[in-house]
Design a protein around this nucleic acid. Structure first.
Lengths: 347, 347
DNA sequence: GAGGTTTGTGCAACCGATTGCAAAGAAAGA
DNA sequence: TCTTTCTTTGCAATCGGTTGCACAAACCTC
């Protein structure tokens, strides 16, 4: 393998009979350098096949143009959309992403944060693992003034921005919609209450019940990791209940759990939405495939990713003061489909 | 914001009254350094809160411990699984990933490759955009001897490994399965034939027909991007056909197209699999949600990601000669579900 | 005890770009 | 013509590890 010699600013400088300083400035389009000189530098750089050495540059300027991303899991449609939005936004601004997943483990999250810190990312984007109880592992970032933006599963902190949707309101609306459709015993398949997203959804659910004067029944709350199997388990539980105790609606905090619960109940002969109405959360592709189509909350993942990154970068370039935007709330909409409409089901 | 002073090896050296050289070597566990000294260095480093400066080190050693990943799109279940596997494997070996997506555009792919090159990734993982016609944009990597591993959508090249499944065989089996189930007019929803995955699937399909003495009918080939809308379009096309011309089975090169085509036909009153049997590819979550459940090919994304990274890293550490493994073929299995079984459908 | 090894450590150059400061040359104002 | 003010450019130090080579001390061997 023939290794070509690497071209440096010194090579360019030598070729043009100017100093490396001028070349460095010229490559950055520094206005202090004569326009003609800049052009000559750019041309020569291209001609020689120069590529800038990020390490040398980062070493001196202490900027890496890299953002760290800490997420619980990569393999969900929602998270993939977020990543996609982040990548696009970052790319547009000349930043790169280093992505790592915690697998919902607090320890792995801490280890990954540590790696990011050592890699000296310019900023950090975080969605917390369900296990995580505090953000001590992010302390080094705050201490060094490295901006941290939380998204989706956030942890309010005075020095950082959160990008979220209004989970409380969304859950409130879902629940209200179910109640208005005639449901009274609404079961909630919730997630880990350490996480704002699940805690807020529970609150929204509770408030909607309260406003409609429906008593809150703790037995109708089922907390899990909201994986496929959890949906199935919930279904099993329901099938074991006496007919009178059974819920007449299920509101799951994600579509995966909702769909798998629904399928399992359907297979057992339960009419959906006739006997049990359903609503999910996220608007995953599966929600519009399952039959009946699942009522859910559209969660703008791509946009969330874009906004989180844009916000972070504007911090970095100082266009933006942390104090100005501590939280960005994105719009989310209730997507009403057949699974929640008892009345229309009687066709 | 109080900025803590950054600790360097010089600080450690001063504290211990030894040279920075020794500290550097000690931190790398260089056996030339006395064990006791090494221990003292490690302890002091921890005590002072030292973190190594990757740039300084990369600048000199010319290694970044970073791998570049070039993919067409991030927001699919399959790709998310691959990323997940890659990230896990990379993380385990102390590598980080820089991920970027081409949006299926050759130009963006080239631009991203260029960025990766400038970021001096130690190695590159590539799945090609559907548009890409050649790999000239990867030439700089080959010239500099930076290892490139292709996965899924590959482009055979003498200096690089490909990680794939046997698309030919998988498609052959799907087609054979449909034929054995009694189908004779099997429509293929294919992807861009520039890509091995789609070209191989077409070949497998053709060979299966040939082996079963069924004439190949060009009118039953529908090439598209295999997005949702393409599935719908295919369905429209079929609905416009005269009854005699209609296919009695559809084999789509991905589940998205299969599922959306199927739903659209179902809505139009076509019996699945009675009138038209269905098979897809990838084993996306939607394939086991749609009714009837979709027969498909299980595609081990997570494993593919893991293997691609592991292979790349072993190249880097020189444990592995390119010549030894030019292609890794992963096992894929036909997952038979209701959508393809005409006989059992008559319940 | 002389000569040969092994072990442990340090010197100083180096990686390639960035930047504060100085200064030469050009343009402008008095 | 003499200052003054820009406009351009370069010097040299700096960022923080890494590494080839030299060398001193300790250990062997005959």
């Amino acid at each position: 393998m023939k290794q070509e010699k690497e071209i440096t600013i010194y090579d360019i400088a030598r070729k043009l009979n100017i100093s490396a300083t001028t070349v460095s400035r010229g490559l950055q389009d520094n206005p202090a350098i004569n326009k003609l000189t800049r052009k000559k530098i750019a041309d020569t750089a291209k001609a020689l096949g120069y590529r800038s050495n990020n390490f040398a540059s980062s070493l001196r300027s202490k900027k890496t143009n890299t953002l760290g991303v800490l997420v619980p899991r990569l393999n969900s449609y929602f998270m993939a959309s977020v990543m996609s939005g982040m990548e696009d936004a970052a790319n547009k601004e000349g930043y790169n992403l280093i992505i790592s997943q915690s697998q919902e483990k607090a320890a792995k999250e801490a280890a990954n944060a540590h790696t990011m810190f050592n890699k000296r990312v310019d900023g950090l984007l975080v969605s917390l693992a369900s296990e995580t109880e505090n953000i001590d592992h992010l302390a080094p970032f705050f201490r060094k003034g490295i901006p941290v933006v939380f998204f989706d599963r956030v942890f309010p902190h005075k020095d950082s921005t959160c990008v979220v949707i209004d989970n409380y309101k969304a859950a409130y609306e879902v629940t209200k919609h179910l109640i208005d459709g005639g449901c009274r015993r609404i079961m909630l398949l919730g997630g880990n209450m350490l996480r704002n997203v699940y805690a807020d959804r529970l609150r929204g659910y509770q408030q909607a019940l309260k406003d409609r004067k429906i008593p809150f029944n703790e037995k109708l709350i089922y907390i899990s990791n909201l994986a496929e199997q959890d949906g199935v388990n919930a279904a099993e539980l329901i099938l074991k209940m006496k007919a009178k105790e059974r819920p007449d609606a299920i509101f799951a905090a994600n579509d995966t759990a909702a769909v798998h619960c629904m399928i399992h109940l359907k297979a057992a002969g339960i009419q959906i939405p006739g006997e049990i109405a359903f609503a999910g959360f996220n608007n995953d592709p599966i929600s519009s495939i399952v039959e009946p189509n699942l009522t859910t909350v559209n969660y703008p993942g791509y946009t969330m990713g874009e906004i989180a990154v844009t916000n972070l970068i504007s911090h970095l370039s100082g266009q933006n003061n942390v104090k100005n935007t501590s939280t960005v709330v994105l719009r989310s909409d209730l997507v009403i489909r057949a699974s929640s409409q008892k009345s229309k089901a009687a066709k």
